[in-house]
Design a protein around this nucleic acid. Structure first.
Lengths: 253, 253
DNA sequence: CCTGTTTATCGTCAGGCAGACGACTATGAT
DNA sequence: ATCATAGTCGTCTGCCTGACGATAAACAGG
């Protein structure tokens, strides 16, 4: 098997980002408006080319920083409270997925706390958070500003769906839901993350028992807050545990 | 962001295969001996270049057939008993992972029933099943034929480790363990699959209760067999269920 | 100040599932 | 016949979960 450059076809390699957060009780994804063909004017996932000397995770983190200013963990690096979680999602390489050329895209999944507002990155494309429900609903009607929602560009609806499903299943058996929370958070805020990501209502009492009873999941900071109204709630930080055992199963039905 | 070909670096894209099976109570992976530098003479995962007009999964299935003659499911296609399961694992793109050029490899995971014997593929490289324990053990001593085991070529030890971990966790909450079994199998054979993949001993009685009590996991064929010795055991086929709820948690410790 | 609303937190109870393990069954080997 | 091997059915106990009652601590409005 000679590695003669003429023996294999050249590919372009990109990273695409599924950046998820929870805003106003809804799971939202970051999308950018395309400024040029193909799919001009349509929404797409942020992303870009991998540079010649750059690792895939590095490229994803760079694109993330360029688009949002977010710092991401290196996937194998230390977990820093408040930083975004980044992991590789999957790779999409259908020969026809980009009409112009053969592009293989390594999608990455980012889970971020609610951000003040996405600041457009280096270039002037518009950027916004959109509820994933709207983005994935084919029939979907109209956006908040009355504008018709067209499906995402390229195969990005599929990529987004895969990312959402990964997030939904991963918070079951890991402590990743805390990546959607600010550095300090209450049990109720964490519960609202689960409710938004899964789209279900959870019993506050059973949820409280479960998460506070799982060793290493939450560590109390000692402080309290009333930012959610009602009785003051204890503040917690994410504990060291990454795997929940037993897992936090989502209700069936 | 112009898609001018000079604006991005060209990559070679390959697929690498982590092909796992259970032989003689041990989880084994398919490895091929490299016939040329770099890593000449070392064992490596099977794989090859993705063709210019070929999807990633198609390329993986083609390489699998070339190396082993195995038919694999299309990842989204129907499940056929006895065929191998194929799914995308992860993508590896460290700039230095191949000393010759920039290669991005999309690794795939294949779970196959025990095969008669690997028949070398189109080319004359030697192919064999090796216990993953031997392949991953850095310290590892000597192979069956007294030959010193060197680490796998490239970053294949890492890829193999990721594939094994995926298989270990995936049989917990899916019915994928049946992919390691022949079309018809007994509860005991399925249990030995779990024991080999997890490297633990399971209680035959509790295991039997669990798997026969999970709806859709196993369907009895009516036949029995004594190929394992002892009392005749009922034969089953894999049922339609793909997700096990509740999951089959592996013992901790 | 009192009352209603909201959110947090603790407790109770019944059902289900899993681990530990006893008992019995049906084959082949000696 | 006896043993060894594997399979299958039960029992019991403890843990976890879902359903839900009750109390606590804040705020808003009269």
């Amino acid at each position: 098997m000679p590695y003669d450059p003429s023996a294999f076809p050249p590919f372009a390699v990109t990273v695409d980002l599924v950046v998820l957060t929870v805003r106003r009780h809804a799971l939202c994804a970051l999308v950018v408006r395309r400024g040029e063909p193909p799919y001009q004017g349509r929404w797409a996932l942020p992303g870009g080319f991998v540079r010649g000397d750059e690792d895939l995770a590095t490229a994803a983190a760079r694109e993330l920083a360029e688009e949002t200013g977010l710092q991401a963990h290196d996937p194998d690096g230390p977990v820093v409270a408040g930083d975004a979680h980044l992991e590789q999602l999957a790779t999409y390489g259908d020969p026809k997925r980009d009409p112009r050329m053969r592009v293989v895209s390594v999608a990455h999944l980012v889970l971020a706390p609610d951000l003040p507002a996405p600041r457009p990155g280096g270039d002037a494309r518009s950027v916004r958070w959109a509820p994933v429900e709207d983005l994935l609903d084919q029939e979907a009607g109209y956006g908040r500003d009355g504008e018709q929602e067209a499906p995402l560009a390229f195969d990005h609806a599929r990529i987004l769906a895969d990312g959402v499903e990964r997030a939904r299943s991963k918070i079951e058996y890991s402590s990743l839901a805390t990546a959607f929370c600010p550095p300090e958070f209450t049990v109720g805020e964490l519960r609202r993350v689960y409710e938004a990501v899964w789209g279900v209502a959870l019993d506050p009492r059973n949820f409280h028992r479960k998460v506070t009873g799982t060793p290493g999941f939450l560590v109390p900071t000692g402080g309290t807050t009333t930012r959610q109204g009602g009785r003051p709630a204890q503040l917690f930080r994410a504990g060291g545990a990454t795997l929940l055992n037993p897992p936090m199963l989502r209700p069936e039905a």
